[in-house]
Nucleic acid binder design. Structure first.
Lengths: 343, 343
DNA sequence: AACTCCTATTGAATCGATAGGATGTGTCGC
DNA sequence: GCGACACATCCTATCGATTCAATAGGAGTT
């Protein structure tokens, strides 16, 4: 019983041939006689030998897997169905093209540090500010990548969503209904906003809301804003805060469905009727949102398609085919039961 | 502008030192003078050099990532929230221990073929029949692994769930309510059942149902059985079939929540009231099941915990610490609104 | 000036496998 | 009996980095 680390030299020795012969036996049968091949394979079986994955990858210069560079830990990321859907889309392409998918969370809270530990042919980079160093690092290393949920950047392929249009549409819808006291329940943008301003999808969604407000003679100063991590319980907590004080909002516009669920939880807890007393909207249109009660009014974005395109673009880039394509996907307002005219 | 493939030799040449010095500059700063180090780092920056991930892994003999060997393509797997939850659990441990997670779908419909293409320190093997060759292959290669949703096997750590007990409990519950005409909506066991019989969780769940039936003087021959892939739409389709004919069942016992959703879809389509006319139960207790209307009666299994334990066991095995632990997790019947006495 | 000691640095081996070109052996034809 | 031609097999360089053991050089001591 070998220690599980038989090498091609061992097999070669056992079969009385050279290491090349061993390699040929596995990858190039026609370059070797049948008898020798059998002998080699028998020896390999005996010793429990199988070609080392790393050895082959190093030699081939390719890993056959694509990395997904994630902005948060796996435990938290996979809690959000948004990412499941996204990975599903990317996974469909991987299935077709025979790639594996390496989920790469930050290392010691640093996305940058995680890069050198991923043996991949390219990265899908999720939800990162495009000028934070990761992009520069990947460029420097010459690793192909595609940006998702980020800012459009020259020289880097990306798949975007019309966040601004979507947010404008849902905000306008609420204003049209007659709501004037809005609360915006937003995802936590990190600590750098004071220095650097909003970035990526968040910036675009806020801009969209501002667009709509302008049409009604309002500004962002007229809405209450809460910024929290994207979990249902944080959405709950923040909403409790938003509803306290004088003149509470008549509509909560959440920038994520998951946050909207939390908002409804809070309102039910406070015995405030949705949508009769307060309207709630989300963003994403997760599958859960049509099951949720009240069925959630939200902005649909094509998450699975986004995943598919990201993987497609990346694989093209890996093959050296594509020239940094950019793609912007549309959104649509899905009106369901969580919104109504203000009381 | 280099072609993105600077090697340690290039840097060494540029800085006028040996390759060893370059390596030290990055990994062992105290073994080299400050001046030289600076010079090397400058040259590295200039050339866009970063140590090759594969090179380092080969040398170190470790990849820092754990593989998840999946029974189906990624596109289909991630459609099922069950796997999202499971991966979330495993991901929590990965976050803590600094591992990445490699999702490895079958290659050309073969799980076995996928193994050599995954550069990992070990595998979590999901939903595979333990004697189908994959286990033998992993053992032969000496790669650590943990079995999930499989059969208990000497010499291989595994995390199981008390499927039999859970199924027995839900079946008995339906029989206690007075249901006698049951339909079982089961996941597709693959083509080998006639030859090899049922395996793994499916076998245990069917056995649990049989246990309960026996207590009531019935056998599996008295229930209608449909076996389909685990998707909502397949559940829908199968249920339409189950309800046709004489003496349709008064209760549908699905072996997966996702299938149960499909069953309810079908019954609503057929204008059959749930639970007034027909009861439906699931298995898993996905988060969605408490949102679903009617809220789904189901068997809860601790999916996230399962994921955590699997990763824990695997990492112990990788470190050479553990001795093939087995663990069986309990289930519990969650009674909600999709079940009632027969009309 | 010679000797020791220490430190920065290097050479070579190792991790495993692959593949292009060279070599050897055997058979066939003339 | 000798040259040509196949075919099987081997040698060696390559993929990139790490690391142990060895060395060169300089500083310090007597």
């Amino acid at each position: 019983m070998p220690s599980g680390k038989a090498t091609s030299s061992d097999v070669a020795a056992a079969a009385g041939v050279s290491r090349s012969a061993v390699s040929f036996a596995f990858n190039n049968p026609q370059r070797i006689s049948v008898a020798t091949r059998e002998r080699i394979l028998a020896a390999a079986e005996e010793l429990g030998y199988a070609p080392s994955t790393l050895g082959r990858m190093l030699q081939a210069g390719t890993t056959g897997s694509i990395g997904v560079l994630l902005p948060q830990g796996l435990g938290r990321i996979l809690e959000n169905p948004y990412y499941s859907r996204f990975l599903m889309g990317a996974g469909q392409v991987c299935d077709q093209e025979g790639y594996t998918l390496l989920l790469t969370p930050p290392l010691q809270d640093s996305v940058l540090k995680a890069i050198p530990y991923a043996a991949v042919d390219g990265f899908i980079v999720c939800g990162l500010e495009a000028d934070r160093g990761e992009v520069a690092e990947l460029t420097r290393r010459g690793i192909p990548f595609v940006l998702i949920d980020s800012d459009r950047l020259e020289g880097a392929p990306s798949v975007e969503v019309d966040d601004r249009g979507g947010a404008r549409e849902v905000a306008r819808y609420l204003l049209d209904l007659g709501h004037r006291r809005l609360a915006v329940l937003s995802m936590d943008p990190g600590a750098e906003v004071p220095v650097r301003g909003y970035r990526g999808p968040l910036a675009r969604r806020l801009a969209g809301i501002a667009d709509a407000l302008t049409d009604f003679g309002l500004t962002m100063a007229d809405v209450r804003l809460a910024e929290v991590p994207v979990t249902r319980s944080e959405g709950y907590r923040a909403t409790v805060g938003l509803m306290s004080g004088d003149e509470p909002p008549t509509a909560v516009l959440a920038l994520s469905d998951v946050l909207a669920y939390g908002a409804v939880d809070a309102l039910q807890e406070l015995a405030i009727k949705v949508p009769a007393e307060v309207s709630v909207t989300g963003f994403d249109d997760l599958a859960e949102s049509s099951w949720f009660r009240p069925r959630l009014t939200t902005v649909r974005q094509p998450i699975v398609t986004k995943g598919r395109m990201a993987a497609d673009f990346l694989i093209s880039a890996i093959r050296g085919e594509a020239q940094h394509p950019h793609q912007t996907l549309g959104t649509s307002l899905i009106v369901r039961e969580s919104t109504a005219k203000p009381a």
